[in-house]
Design a protein around this nucleic acid. Structure first.
Lengths: 347, 347
DNA sequence: CGCTATAAATGGAACGTTCCAATAAATCAA
DNA sequence: TTGATTTATTGGAACGTTCCATTTATAGCG
């Protein structure tokens, strides 16, 4: 059944009674070939079960048609959505995105990048793993392969970044909580080795500053960025002498964790303690109580990143502008007013 | 900054004052070269910022080191977990898995497979998109590239499958519901174009048969396999003349949807209507109420699939045995006893 | 009819590796 | 010393494409 050796362009040429050059031309859809000849060749291709060898072609051609997407945590639905957005535009451009997962591991990331480079990718879209060293992309940059960062940026790097407006998102979310009457606020989860953390925390702090929440009434609890981290943060917060009545969480996963911990204590998010998330993953809407969260248009960011990448490839540059995506607050049930303040309002 | 043309093995040879063959040997870690020479070469490699061209190498070598993972829905956390399991074992074997998403679209799947083949993958692990035609993999099989299906199988195909024991999973879940006193049961979601559907539904029906639930007390509601589908199924079911009191759902997403619809009607899963899911995704445990579900050891199945793939590549065969993974029922809050029957029991 | 202009098809030299066969250098036995 | 053996290194021919420069066939025109 399986033909002995893989069929090549020469086998097709023989089969169709033409030269290899003609076959090559047909393969590329050149208009220089007489339609009948093209048909004949295409038939031969079908007959011998030929599969195009892109590796060989790339040896001559300048650029390949694959771009690599390097993602730090595929199990986070957030990144899956991002990937889906990118795929949409790449597909339309005839580019094939290969996704690789680094599982938040810089060593693994190094391997993955190396592999992708060896494969001759035309570009790289990456959400860098936590703990990536500043020099990790130097070689790739030197090789002239365009890179775009998504969602995360590296401390000192001139690689373009496509990310949501983290600062503003945190600001409006915090503002919302304060307007609801909360005056002892917490920021849950994340840690300072992530640039995103500083952006979001910065927005939180600026809102506090602007709207008159003194430093003594702010509680910052670092922690893991998953559910577990959120649970731990809540425990820590409630153990404080003057516990906060509301928290902005680093992301939705942390928020879910905090809500879970609340329920374990017999408390209800929204009624007893306000929780706001960040990212607005699909799940947020369906949670109970539904989670108030900062929406970042994930798929849109993915599309944007893909577009930027395509433009860089086309203009053979390694430079591009950052793109900061608009954010909006989606208010749901988890961010109720502060109980005491509510009473105060009513009085 | 970026070197003009890409450095090749010849540039290194010149730089190090040796021949290209020597460089090639060093690159492959051959023991035939004098350590000092190797060091010299490695330094040159570093100096010129060389990146290995695997495409060129594959032109001569028999096999590449990349295998493709073709997944039908990356946004389903279930598949992300599966991917993670596979990656673990591939990484250890020095094989690089590239993931591609088909978004449940057979046309997209076709393109993705073509691309992967052109890239010269050593093997393919695929969870076929719904509606895949039986002949979709014929060409790939003919080319002698090993394929393994995961989670889903195609109607008439001899390609090995790695999947959970769907029939048994559905059986024990149904048995559980019947033991809880339910005697009007429903099966929610999925449709008959999926082989998995028949397997799960089959288990459900066999349990009903065995444990004395007559056909008149079974309700089968086909539907989409996401939350939306689950909501619709529940509505349909409750509109029946003799509505069921419990449902086994095609998967957890459907179950979540059903629970959501229950809540919208002011009913509570577990207390008012029993819901059991399938797959036991991470979320099931954290839902409220926590979802009873059939656990399938997702990551384990991924690892198994990867192992089978590696063995096929090594022994250059395209044949392998199916592997049916053990399942177990994880009982949580969503599957309470039937109210009436509970009263009966107490009396 | 011969000549040019156009269209269609072709041969051959790359592209960056691997690997075999061959060479060169060093070591050893007698 | 000479030849045999081992150890390191090397040239060159593939591998399957693309694409430039040619060649060959077809048509157009006076």
């Amino acid at each position: 059944m399986a033909s002995r050796a893989k069929a090549t362009i020469l086998d097709i040429a023989r089969e169709a009674g033409v030269s290899k050059s003609t076959v090559s031309l047909v393969l590329q859809g050149s208009g220089l070939i007489r339609p009948e000849t093209a048909t004949k060749v295409r038939k031969a291709i079908e007959d011998v079960g030929y599969v195009y060898n892109r590796g060989a072609a790339n040896l001559r051609k300048a650029h390949s048609n694959v771009i690599g997407m390097v993602i730090n945590d595929l199990t986070n639905p957030f990144f899956a959505e991002l990937a889906v957005g990118m795929e949409r535009v790449f597909q339309a451009a005839g580019v094939v995105p290969f996704i690789a997962n680094t599982a938040e591991n810089p060593v693994r990331q190094e391997e993955v990048l190396k592999s992708l480079m060896e494969q001759g990718v035309a570009g790289l879209i990456v959400s860098p793993a936590r703990g990536t060293t500043p020099g990790a992309f130097r070689r790739i940059e030197a090789a002239g392969v365009p890179i775009v960062f998504t969602m995360r940026r590296l401390p000192e790097s001139r690689i373009p970044v496509i990310a949501p407006d983290n600062h503003r998102g945190a600001f409006i979310a915090t503002e919302h909580l304060i307007r609801k009457g909360h005056c002892r606020l917490a920021f849950f989860g994340g840690s300072s080795d992530l640039v995103v953390y500083h952006e979001r925390l910065g927005g939180f702090l600026e809102a506090c500053e602007t709207l008159g929440i003194p430093a003594s009434d702010r509680l910052i609890v670092e922690g893991e960025t998953g559910r577990k981290g959120g649970m731990a943060c809540l425990e820590t917060a409630l153990a404080a002498a003057q516990p906060p009545t509301a928290a902005l969480c680093f992301n939705d996963a942390v928020a879910f964790g905090a809500m879970l911990a609340l329920r374990k204590r017999g408390l209800e998010a929204g009624a007893d303690f306000a929780v706001v998330g960040f990212d607005d993953v699909a799940e947020a809407e369906h949670y109970s109580p539904a989670l108030t969260s900062v929406a970042v248009d994930t798929a849109g960011l993915g599309e944007r990143a893909a577009h930027v990448m395509l433009r860089m490839i086309q203009s053979r540059t390694t430079r591009a502008e950052d793109h900061i995506g608009a954010v909006s607050l989606v208010v749901r049930e988890s961010s109720g007013p502060d109980r005491n303040s509510q009473v105060g309002d009513a009085a």
